[in-house]
């Protein structure tokens, strides 16, 4: 068993934890954090798969894609934060309404 297999599994785990939180947490900031954790999981899977195919030389293409992806994730997070602030200012709370409480 290759020890490198741990990294993509941790990445998948992060993705699934983020997805669960994205569905279950009503607060928008937590949803945003969940999306970021999912993104981190995807980056980890991508970079670790790039690492495992040849042990001598790493594949630089996934690295470059991840660097690009991180910057895009930051800007998307910033845009989503502004949306969240707008919702919080309009409705008084940064949460989605829970149908069970009505």
């Amino acid at each position: 068993m290759n020890t490198l297999i741990v990294y993509p599994l941790v990445g998948i785990g992060l993705f699934c934890i983020g997805l669960y939180a994205l569905i279950m947490q009503p607060h928008l900031l937590r949803k945003l954090l969940a999306v970021n954790i999912m993104g981190s999981g995807v980056f980890l899977v991508l970079v670790s798969l790039g690492m495992s195919n040849t042990n001598a030389q790493q594949d630089p293409v996934p690295h470059a894609m991840i660097i690009t992806g991180i910057v895009v994730a930051i800007s998307a997070t910033a845009l989503a934060l502004v949306f969240m602030i707008k919702i919080a200012l309009k409705t008084g709370k940064a949460e989605l309404s829970n149908p069970e409480e009505k």
Partner: peptide
Amino acid sequence: TLLLFAGLTYTVLSLPKQTKGLGE
């Protein structure tokens, strides 16, 4: 989510071991 984890793990584990990638 657990099912998704299992499915993705299976996918990663069943990837071909000897891929060349783009490094070369």
